[in-house]
Amino acid sequence: MAARIEVRGLDLAFPLYHGHARSLKKRMIASVAGRMGANGRMGEDSRHRVVVQALRDVNFSLTSGERLGLVGGNGAGKTTLLRSLAGIYEPVAGQVRIEGTINALLDASLGMHPELTGRENIRLRGLMQGLGGAAIARLEEDVREFTELGDFLELPLRTYSYGMMVRLGFGMATAIRPQVLLMDEWLLAGDASFMEKALARIGDLVRSAEILVLSTHAVEIVRAWCTRLIWLDQGRVRADGGVGEVLDAYLGHKPPPAPG
């Protein structure tokens, strides 16, 4: 079956129940606070709960072969959109339909535990992906080969250097080849010596996926990889089209924000 993504009228709002103690809420409030008033992104819903409107009336569809880039400032809703495509956040209104196997690379340290050995971490990650015994063995082999960690895989992660940890996390995340690849920009951050090898591996992964959705600030990557671009601004689609035109509009609008 050919992969396909269909998003219609997607609305997503975060309720703020737990006051100020939660870091996510703090971050969102901080990123939204500056713009409150003007666009009313933070407001009250019909039951007088404080909500942050993270996505508003997002519409697009992707077919096999399309590589979509998501650009926009911090807090524009890029990661939230990726999460709802991954089925983590279910829509408050509207509809998301994904046909095809999905791999979402959203969190570098997904399921990584410092006290477990590299190999145990790989196994847990495989189980999280719903892999069977044989596929987990292949995953381990693939990661061992790519990371060149050798016997370190038998040691707990806390004995690893930062670079080794990054290699393992990256190796595990990119070993599974889905039809629909959802990727957050953390994947593209790493030390220079590792980057070349990493980029080659991501290139492979991207080529083998039928649909790519990538959230990033890096203009070079967007130009090299994407065939289509959506510019998100405060939860809305501000522009949707070819890479050239949307990128020009986005970059002309304001200087590219600092990464991170």
Partner: peptide, 24 residues
């Protein structure tokens, strides 16, 4: 600069570890 642009028409190579079908 090392970014290699993916082929416009993706060939589907034998995946190393395929995502299991029917995961979702």
């Amino acid at each position: 600069n090392a970014i290699t642009p993916p082929d416009p028409q993706p060939a589907l190579p034998d995946p190393a570890v395929p995502a299991p079908g029917g995961r979702n």
